[in-house]
């Protein structure tokens, strides 16, 4: 297999080509799409959504799902905003506590799943409702308005007027996850458990702690996304996280993730986020009914799942076996 064909087969190749082509084509139709301001909005969307999606991707890697990413994110967001407004905590301390809440929520999910053997679907469906309920109990559905200027600046300004500050955490986390999943035994164990739990159990790696680790990482990333959402929206809305779920599955699937576990790609998943962001923005630009965005996203998932299935069937036919 030559180096060039390796690129064609890589998971990120298809979504990357589609993203770049889409930007160029839509840009040709309407120059406004590639204006600096519009590109800025695009990058901000990818930065925030990227964090949400990576949080889901880690759990997909072990062959499970985390329906509570939005619940955790929302709880972390209002905790962050509330601790600053009500308790007067400095932003860094408030953010640290919000992230700890995310870790605790992930631990709760992971521990219940690993020790009870109940499916992740049921556990995280229940905990989604639990986290959302705590959120509404604390806020009475009222937003926190007093967000410090430094947080607002973090959500709206850019490093050297080029790279939005908001994209920095996502870049760091994406890189760290890439290293974790390709080079570190913990990440390899997460993928191996997703692919063949029986084989992993025989190597002496604890299935239980591997599952818990994945959910803890997921909770941490969901909380980070919640904090970033407050900075981006400049307000501590209790509804943060409510609309994350569909996206969080769409992007990994577009990026070729296997939902039964064992295979995810950070790069391809982020390109998946880009595709979703581009389509959403283009529909806004062309003044298409926003409700249609939802329908298009659904079709996109079906298309991506279809492609993945086709690849899988082709691989099973045993072409090119050595």
């Amino acid at each position: 297999m030559g180096r060039t064909s390796a690129y064609f087969q890589a998971d990120w190749f298809g979504p990357a080509v589609i993203s770049v082509l889409a930007v160029l084509v839509i840009g040709l139709i309407d120059r406004a799409f590639i204006s600096p301001a519009a590109l800025d909005v695009l990058i901000l969307a990818v930065a925030l959504n990227g964090m949400i999606v990576l949080s889901q991707m880690v759990v997909i890697a072990i062959g499970q799902m985390n329906l509570s990413v939005g619940g955790i994110g929302g709880l972390a967001a209002i905790s962050f905003a509330g601790l600053m407004q009500v308790q007067g905590l400095p932003p860094v301390a408030a953010a640290a506590i919000a992230l700890l809440i995310g870790v605790a929520a992930g631990l709760f999910n992971g521990w219940l799943i690993a020790t009870t053997g109940i499916s992740a679907f049921v556990i995280t469906l229940a905990s989604l409702s639990l986290f959302k309920g705590i959120n509404l109990g604390i806020t009475s559905a009222q937003p926190f308005y007093e967000i410090p200027a430094v947080v607002k600046a973090f959500g709206s300004e850019a490093l050297f007027d080029m790279l939005p500050f908001l994209s920095l955490p996502t870049i760091v986390i994406a890189f760290a996850l890439m290293v974790l999943l390709t080079r570190m035994p913990l990440g390899r164990n997460i993928l191996a458990v997703g692919a063949n739990p029986g084989a992993v159990a025989l190597t002496g790696v604890s299935l239980k702690w591997t599952v818990i680790a994945a959910h803890v990482i997921s909770g941490f990333l969901a909380a980070a996304a919640g904090v970033m959402a407050v900075a981006r929206l400049q307000i501590g809305l209790p509804t943060i996280g409510d609309d994350w779920l569909l996206l969080s599955f769409a992007a990994p699937v577009i990026g070729g993730a296997v939902l039964s576990g064992g295979h995810v790609s950070v790069g391809a998943t982020l390109w998946g986020v880009a595709i979703v962001a581009i389509i959403t923005q283009a529909l806004v630009l062309f003044k298409i009914d926003p409700y249609l965005v939802q329908a298009v996203l659904g079709l996109l998932i079906l298309w991506a799942v279809g492609i993945n299935r086709w690849r899988e069937v082709r691989a099973r036919k045993g072409e090119g076996k050595l």
Binding site: M184, P185, N189, T203
Partner: peptide, 12 residues
């Protein structure tokens, strides 16, 4: 697989 799984954060 067996040997690698032990040290969770040592780079492979």
């Amino acid at each position: 697989l067996e040997r690698n799984g032990r040290h969770l954060f040592r780079m492979i």
